[in-house]
Structures are given as structure tokens and as C-alpha cells.
Write a protein that binds this DNA or RNA. Structure first.
Lengths: 202, 202
DNA sequence: GTCTATACCCGGATAGAC
DNA sequence: GTCTATCCGGGTATAGAC
């Protein structure tokens, strides 16, 4: 006990390196599968060494997603679920297919209650929904357009079809974590709103 | 020819039994992982026997999803992507979490171009989008409401938040298969439409 | 507190017998 | 066409070195 440091001070540094390696691995490995050994090699360790810091592969991937969230939050606006920041994040995601795949992958696996990321995703969706809803409520009475999309936004049938399908798939993801959600009802409402938009804007 | 050759019709009977077993396994397993051995046991075979008919686990799961699609098509309306049928299917999905998880799971994995389900999902989204877009276009000039949701459809901030998040996640799924999709632009348009709806209906 | 070495188990894949 | 046997790779648990 020579130089006393915080209980997690030193480990967090190594954890950070491992997480960075995992991020890099997923970013590069466009389509190949990433094993714990792959990540370990990048930091010059064995797989057991890596697992020592995270306990399991799933826990490691969960930590990676948390780190990615934190990085996004730091990069684009402090208020994580600000609508403008959300669009910026999506735009940024479009440059990292590997990480998007990682997200979708873990999100699917996290449907299991025992999965280490289960709580993380539940919380993530919960707070995101809350923040977005609050933001929307705030902007309802605004006269100014809060989110100004630079390019022209096309509102046509093809766009509506993409949105309808996307909402269906995405709602399934949320529903797996929160079974109270009424997917069909939500989609029916969306359908009505989209039809109105198509009728008015064309 | 009345007796088709090739790997599709010869063993189709056994394949069918295996697919049914896989469907049952995923439906029951709720969210636990299903191995090829699990499925094989249900049909009184070994895993090697099952693999002989499909080549790989991934190919088997792809076949399961195709069968599920076909079954849904048969059960709810002939025109697969009819909007009403789509809602019915979603409602039905809400009773089978295991199968929903299977879908999301394979959809994520199918982002890889080498995955056996890659083409399947590309085609599925492509035709779905086409059909839905056509259906929407047809209904724009209709005076009657084409899809009548029985329960009241709530249009509020919480609903809009769920939709916004769902569309984000779902668009990522489509984008992984079709990188030409501009996620941010689509979402910006959705944001505008949702804001309009909230302003008008509240 | 960190890491290596090792051994274990499970699951998917493959070869060859029947 | 299906089984048995086997292989292999990946994740995991443990012991012990530093």
C-alpha cells in the first residue's frame, strides 16, 4: 500500500483502453465477427485478462455501448436527448456501420432479462422517451422551428413507407423491453398522421 | 413437371417438420437461446441430421423466418403488405415474444452481406416499401378511412417520443441493408410531421 | 489488483459409416 | 438421408504468477 489510489482508479484506465479497442475492432470489422480474443490482441492481452475487467463478453459489449453513448453525449450537446443532437448523432452513426450493427445486435440480445444490457436499454429508452416528450411539449407552443433540417425534407409515399416499416421494427425493440407498449395502436395512430401529412403536403 | 427436382421439393416434408419444430421452440423458449440440438430433439433427430437439410444454423433460421412470413401472409389477407394486414400481423406478433426476438436477432445478423438472410431481408424491405407506398398513394384520394383502428389512437408527446425513437432504430436496420437511405433526413421530416400533428390535435 | 496459463464446456460444423 | 464420431472455435471458470 505504497501509493494509495482510488479503488477503481487504475482499472478504469485499462478498461478505457479495452473499450477503445473494442470500438475500433467493431468499427473496422465491417462484417466479420468480433471475438473477445480479437479485442484482447489489440491491447496486447489474453482474453482472460480482458474478461477479468468485465466479467463476460456481454458485459464488455454493454460497457462499449455505454461508452459510445457517453461519447456521443459529449460530442453533440450536453442535453443528450435534445432533438437536434439526436439528428446529429444519427448523421454521425451513418459513418460507422459496424457500431450501428453492434448496437442493434446487443439491443436484440438485451431482450433477455438476464442480459447485462437489459437494464441499460430499459433505462436508456425510458429516459430518452421522457426527454423527447418533454422537448416536444416545450416546442408545441414555440413559433420558431426548433429543429431546422438543412436539406429539403421529402414527404412522399416512399418516405412514409420507410417510416412505417421502421417504426414497426423499432417498436418491437421497445416492446421487448417494455411489454406494456401497444404496438398496433401506436402504429395505427402513426398511419393516420402520415396520411394527413401526405394529403396536406402534396 | 409434377415432380420438381432439386433440394427444395425432395426433402420438403422433413424440412417442413423441422421448421415447425423451430417455430415452436422459439415460441416457447420465450427469450432463451435455442440451439440446433434443441430443435433436433423435437423432431427426434440429431443436430447433424437437421443441419444436413439446411447446411447451417443461420440458413435454418432464415428458412424459419420465410415460413413465418408465408404463414402470416396466408393468415392475414393475400396482399401481404396491405396496411390493415400489417396491423393485424403486429397485433399477432405481440403474442409471440420469442418469435419477435428471433426476427430482430436475425435481422441484425443479416446486415452482413454473406449472411444467408441478407438477400431475404433486402427483398423483404424492398417489396414491403413498394407495396406500402403504393397502398398509401391509392388511399390519398380516398375519402373513406382505409385503416380503422378500433381503439382510440392517442396522439400525444409520449406517443410521438416512442415513434421517434422507434423510427430511429428501425431506420438503422433498413440502412444497414440499404445504405442509400438518408436516416437523418427521413427523421427530420418525421419530426416536422409529428410536431404538426401535435399542434393540430391537442 | 492484474494478468497468464490452462482446462472445460457448449455449440456448430464436417466426415464417414450404415 | 440419417446417425455416430470427431473436430474446432469461442466463451467461461479457476489457479496461480507477478
Amino acid at each position: 500500500m505504497s501509493t494509495p489510489r482510488g479503488p477503481y482508479a487504475k482499472t478504469s484506465l485499462k478498461r478505457q483502453k479495452i473499450i477503445e479497442a473494442a470500438l475500433a475492432a467493431y468499427a473496422e470489422a465491417g462484417s466479420r465477427k468480433v471475438s473477445v480474443r480479437d479485442i484482447a490482441q489489440r491491447v496486447g492481452m489474453t482474453d482472460a485478462g480482458v474478461l477479468h475487467h468485465f466479467g463476460s463478453r456481454e458485459a464488455l459489449l454493454t460497457a462499449v455501448l455505454e461508452a459510445r453513448d457517453a461519447a456521443a453525449r459529449a460530442a453533440f450537446g450536453e442535453t443528450r436527448d435534445d432533438l437536434r443532437a439526436g439528428l446529429d448523432i444519427v448523421t454521425h452513426n451513418a459513418s460507422t456501420p459496424g457500431l450501428v450493427k453492434l448496437f442493434v445486435d446487443v439491443a436484440a440480445a438485451a431482450a433477455e432479462p438476464e442480459h447485462p444490457a437489459h437494464g441499460f436499454f430499459q433505462d436508456r429508452y425510458d429516459t430518452s422517451r421522457r426527454n423527447i416528450a418533454g422537448q416536444l411539449a416545450r416546442h408545441i407552443d414555440d413559433s420558431e422551428e426548433p429543429v431546422t433540417p438543412e436539406p429539403v425534407t421529402p414527404v412522399d409515399q416512399e418516405w412514409a413507407a420507410r417510416i412505417l416499416l421502421a417504426a414497426t421494427d423499432g417498436l418491437q425493440l421497445q416492446w421487448l423491453l417494455e411489454p406494456d407498449i401497444d404496438m398496433a395502436q401506436d402504429l395505427a395512430a402513426l398511419y393516420g398522421v402520415l396520411m394527413d401529412a401526405l394529403r396536406n403536403r402534396t
